[in-house]
């Protein structure tokens, strides 16, 4: 998730993150009001064309759908057999459209811009004790440290393997957690040293 963003300078890249999210919400809700298959296919063609406009390839578009192709096919078959094939295609066309639209958003929007948008839209939660700055820092730190955590886990697993310990979840979890705790101390020092000051 952390390295989905593709730098670029297209219309979509330059669009304000908040506006993009609004467009996504709007398009996503509208698509459920459309039940005409031809219109849906036109929408799919259009969103695919948007990928080209954003300087992305058709394969990028396909990558958004790839993880769920099997699920989509299953839905199609079930709907097709129970109801009608037209309905089956309608349902999966809607899903595909949603996935493509959401993918377009993540591919053309920096995480930081998305976070800024979240941050500036959470201000109304302040009265009940939610600090939007803290929420956005938490999201950033999570994104930053997912790959680090993955690497630590691999290191520990390898260290255990060379010493003859095969798959063993508790044996893996304990050193990983210990290292993450030590690391979180260092990270919190680093936040201090770098002048972080939640207000």
């Amino acid at each position: 998730m952390h390295d989905l963003y593709r730098p670029g300078n297209s219309l979509f890249h330059r669009m304000h993150a908040g506006h993009k999210v609004l467009c996504l919400v709007f398009a996503g809700s509208t698509i459920f009001l459309v039940s005409n298959l031809i219109t849906l296919i036109a929408a799919l063609v259009m969103i695919t064309f948007c990928y080209r406009l954003a300087g992305l390839s058709l394969s990028d578009a396909y990558q958004q759908l790839r993880p769920v192709v099997v699920v989509l096919l299953l839905i199609l078959i079930v709907q097709g057999l129970i109801h009608s094939w037209t309905l089956g295609f309608t349902v999966i066309a809607r899903f595909a459209f949603l996935l493509l639209a959401a993918g377009l958003l993540t591919l053309t929007t920096r995480v930081s811009d998305m976070i800024t948008t979240i941050e500036s839209n959470l201000h109304w939660l302040r009265p009940i004790g939610v600090n939007p700055g803290k929420v956005s820092l938490a999201i950033s730190l999570t994104l930053r440290f997912i790959p680090v955590m993955r690497r630590v886990t691999t290191e520990v697993r390898e260290a255990q393997k060379v010493r003859g310990l095969e798959r063993n979840l508790p044996a893996l979890a304990i050193p990983v957690i210990t290292r993450m705790l030590k690391m979180s101390d260092d990270i919190s020092d680093a936040l201090d040293a770098r002048g972080y000051d939640p207000h």
Binding site: V111, S112, S140, R144, V148, M183, A190, A193, R194, G195
Partner: peptide
């Protein structure tokens, strides 16, 4: 200014440019 031994624990933002902005934003 303080530089730690392990940069992995000091870099707190996911993207290079964002990490450089972190301290400046705090200021």
């Amino acid at each position: 200014g303080f530089v730690f031994q392990n940069p992995d624990n000091q870099i707190v933002m996911p993207i290079v440019e964002e990490d450089l902005a972190f301290g400046l934003k705090n200021r």
